[in-house]
């Protein structure tokens, strides 16, 4: 590693001032330290943001949603009672690495690292998560979905700090699920992942649908063809099959050592269908799919 300065400020204002001077935020370090040690990223000044109380807090929001501090470890997030209403977030956080990794890794870091394969992102997109951001010009909020530019690169300015991920209250009759495929059960990078979210009316008709895919494009993406097919319908095995096929068409994968493009599309088809079936099971209206 090249030489660098290290600071651990306790306020957002101090951290933002340091970032404006060219420093890089450090949350759990499970991406950043690895990248620095492997010489993939040179940083002149590391700013540990875990000592800023807001960045590790879980706070109820006035609308009934919650704000999750960007640097809170996945383990602590998962143990927080307020997360019980967001099982898809807890489950996808718990897919990240080993228990040791989860004791450090944050969902803020997962988002800011901007890997196409990041496991927490599809569920965040499905649930309509917002990113609370602070910078030299003040604060702003952006949908998490709109944050990604290309692999490893968000649309945050270098001088901006992600403060928190803000989740709206889950609407009545809604359910979410994220599934990924990895050759090993733990400690592996998703070859493909699919997150789904459904909302339905009293009669069981889908009123809103979101499908978000991992590892099949330069950034996490939505699957609009699949989403449109689901709205206005009562889920059946045939409908979920079709949605899976359409999600595979929405995917734009590459072939690499972890899987060919065609294989990834096939995974998206199956994972989307299964995640949708899981949402239906959560509703108490199970649909049989393979």
């Amino acid at each position: 590693m090249k030489e660098f300065e290290f600071s651990a400020p306790t306020t957002i204002a101090e951290a933002v001032a340091l970032l404006a001077g060219g420093a890089r935020p450090l949350a759990g370090g499970t991406d950043l330290i690895v990248q620095m040690r492997e010489g993939r990223r040179a940083v002149g000044h590391v700013v540990d943001v875990k000592r800023i109380p807001e960045l590790t807090a879980v706070t109820p929001m006035p609308d009934g949603g919650i704000s999750i501090g960007a640097a809170l470890s996945v383990t602590r997030m998962a143990a927080h009672p307020a997360l019980a209403r967001y099982p898809a977030i807890v489950e996808s956080g718990r897919m990240i690495g080993s228990y040791q990794i989860q004791n450090r890794a944050s969902i803020g870091g997962n988002v800011c690292n901007a890997a196409p394969s990041a496991d927490a992102i599809p569920a965040l997109i499905c649930l309509g998560a917002q990113a609370a951001i602070a910078g030299p010009q003040g604060r702003r909020t952006e949908p998490v979905e709109a944050l990604f530019e290309r692999p490893g690169r968000t649309r945050l300015a270098e001088s901006e700090l992600l403060l928190a991920i803000v989740l709206p209250p889950p609407p009545a009759r809604s359910a979410a699920k994220y599934l990924r495929f990895t050759p090993r059960r733990e400690m592996d990078i998703a070859v493909a992942g699919a997150g789904t979210w459904l909302r339905r009316d009293e009669r069981g008709v889908v009123t809103e649908a979101r499908v978000a895919l991992a590892s099949v494009a330069p950034t996490p993406i939505r699957a609009p063809l699949a989403e449109r097919r689901l709205v206005g319908e009562i889920p059946s095995a045939a409908l979920l099959d079709e949605a899976g096929i359409l999600a595979a068409q929405d995917a734009r994968p590459i072939s690499d050592t972890r899987g060919s493009a065609g294989y990834r599309q096939e995974l998206v088809r199956v994972l989307t269908r299964r995640a949708l079936a899981d949402c239906c099971a959560q509703f108490g209206s199970p649909v049989d799919v393979a």
């Binding site: 651990a8 450090l26 370090g29 690895v34 540990d48 228990y99 004791n103 450090r104």
Partner: peptide, 17 residues
């Protein structure tokens, strides 16, 4: 680290002050 297992190889010493 505060009772929780972590990988010491990817934690900076100064983080644990």
């Amino acid at each position: 680290l505060d009772g929780a297992p972590v990988n010491a190889c990817i934690v900076l010493a100064l983080e644990v002050a």
